[in-house]
Design a protein around this nucleic acid. Sequence first.
DNA 1: GATGAATGAGGTTTCATTCAT
DNA 2: TATGAATGAAACCTCATTCAT
Lengths: 204, 204, 204, 204
Amino acid sequence: MAKEDRKKREKENRKQTILKSALYSFAKHGYHKCSMDLIAEEAELGKATLYYYFKNKDELLLEVLKTGLELFFENMTKAWESLEDTREKIEAISITAGEFFAEHPDYFRLYLYLSTHPKLNKITSESLRPLVQNKNKVFIQLFKKAVKEKLVKPIPPQNLVNVLGTLIMGVGMFGHYKRKSDIKKRMKLINEIFFNGVLLDKKK
Amino acid sequence: MAKEDRKKREKENRKQTILKSALYSFAKHGYHKCSMDLIAEEAELGKATLYYYFKNKDELLLEVLKTGLELFFENMTKAWESLEDTREKIEAISITAGEFFAEHPDYFRLYLYLSTHPKLNKITSESLRPLVQNKNKVFIQLFKKAVKEKLVKPIPPQNLVNVLGTLIMGVGMFGHYKRKSDIKKRMKLINEIFFNGVLLDKKK
Amino acid sequence: MAKEDRKKREKENRKQTILKSALYSFAKHGYHKCSMDLIAEEAELGKATLYYYFKNKDELLLEVLKTGLELFFENMTKAWESLEDTREKIEAISITAGEFFAEHPDYFRLYLYLSTHPKLNKITSESLRPLVQNKNKVFIQLFKKAVKEKLVKPIPPQNLVNVLGTLIMGVGMFGHYKRKSDIKKRMKLINEIFFNGVLLDKKK
Amino acid sequence: MAKEDRKKREKENRKQTILKSALYSFAKHGYHKCSMDLIAEEAELGKATLYYYFKNKDELLLEVLKTGLELFFENMTKAWESLEDTREKIEAISITAGEFFAEHPDYFRLYLYLSTHPKLNKITSESLRPLVQNKNKVFIQLFKKAVKEKLVKPIPPQNLVNVLGTLIMGVGMFGHYKRKSDIKKRMKLINEIFFNGVLLDKKK
DNA sequence: GATGAATGAGGTTTCATTCAT
DNA sequence: TATGAATGAAACCTCATTCAT
């Protein structure tokens, strides 16, 4: 029946509304200073409704993060679709990340915040591990390939992933960029340094 | 009088005890999940005693952070004392940071945590700005010199500071290092990549 | 819907219950020695429930006072409805006040208590000023009329209001009246003295 | 020995300092919002010192009040010394009170505040009762005499005392007088009304 | 005599969560 | 399905008082 379909759609919409409000509020006030009341108000829903859709605050947080990660990885996949060259693919990582951060700064900040929280980090990283681990493997494969192709030095791929990841994160943490183009510029610099280092080649 | 001196010393000691307990507890539980009771228990003092030494929780946090930053900058200064060469000085930054992080992981984590919190970041960064700004200037001078000496490419010094800072932070965020030597190795890698990039020189 | 109406009524009732308990407890123990726990217990509600209905203790106090003032002014208005004569109207002031005080001694005492507190007086009098000011104007008009009608001596109306007000307040402060009729008698005496003074006319 | 005398004097001085600081602080912040710390700071003494001179906060309050009352009654006695006429004596009450209030507004306010506090009133009024009762008797005698002399109407003397007392208190409660002369004017009005009432004699 | 340091007891407020409807 | 109302638990903070010196 069409009626049931609509109901399902509506329910899904409602869930999305909550996730969006939660993301916004978490990012604005910080997870711990953000009450369920605040989210409910932002979502223009009753507070108890949040509990109808999500078991508790922690789970709501997790779902928010999962949504963000999935979105990011989707973007990543899309960006890679048209690329074959290993170096271009590696460069695409920070470029895509930069775009994602420009478009959804809240996800980024929230993710960082939780990464640094001793207790929450455990909970979230455990829950999101499958998702992250999965993508991590892909990144590692990419760097393995890069090493094999003699594109990059024989550094353990996991280290390379971590270093590049760190550099990207840093763009999000430090910068308070006014324009989106600023983020892109910064990402280009990151890539430049990552590949070539900062030394001025004197031989030339 | 010697008596008064001893009293002063004892008071200072007590303050240090509290700061230490606070640091430990903040880092263990995260600032928001760490109650004043917890800190008091850790310090084996009455809760009200904390308030005798520090105006409130926020101020206690600030003092903890300030202590940490000062300690780090002291280490930095000491490390630089015996160095003249620009590149060596730059390398010393991550090395020192690595040692500091190995020795005092709690400071590092707490600092990161606060950096990513939307509200707390404002408060703390404003209060600690003078301290940080001061050191930042020194770092910028160093990179300016590096550019002038044609050691590194003509990249804006502030960007270089940020990128290097980010890389160092990342070591703290990502790694769960078992041995202290692991951190040092990682810091060496950071320096290596920062200076030379990851590209394998094919000309050879 | 009737259902919604009932809910609204119930909520209003609950609020009234709290206000009543608060008034009783404030008056019994004094605002500062009266904890929110005490009020909650008196109202047979959880302490947090008080905060559901009132933002904080100060606001609860204000609402209590506002309720009292409004009730008093309503009584005043009713008492005046059937009166035309200026003197009768003036006399009605203390009579009504006396009745109000007999019926609701707590309001009176609480109001007095706050009037004399240096800090609270500022807060409350500012919040209640519109209400009080409004009625004050009416009283002043009445005395202006009395002066114009040559009923009373040409004393500035505001002074007359203050003196009469003071006399009435005093009945509340001093007296510990056993019977309600005692208050009424006292109010009659107040009126008598206010109008005629205490001098025995010797000419007669 | 002179040395012991000096010590005694110093001790007495110290006590006076504390009483003065306590009065000032109580009046400024209100008894309940005035911590012992505040008083100690105002007195430029250690907090524990207060407890050396006074058993506890309540007793300190009592002593403050007692000092004030005694001072007021002294003034009263002095004012009456040169007066014989009953009416003049009665008029001297409010005049003296006005002067006292102008000179020591803090005593007045503090006294009023406590009079209206349900718990404190009991404690203080019990402790100060002998002092007050004593003077009350004198006032009653005065009014008895006034009645007997056919100066005033045959109203029960206690009532007269209360009404006059009330009128005087009211001057303190209501008014926020800029100049001392304003208080004196107001006291004259009080006397005028008290003796003659507000009615305009139409027979003339 | 004088006091700095310490604290237990108790206050206000917040908030995640539940429950009846 | 949706929610207003209720609350226990726990957080931050204050303060009168004591005690060792």
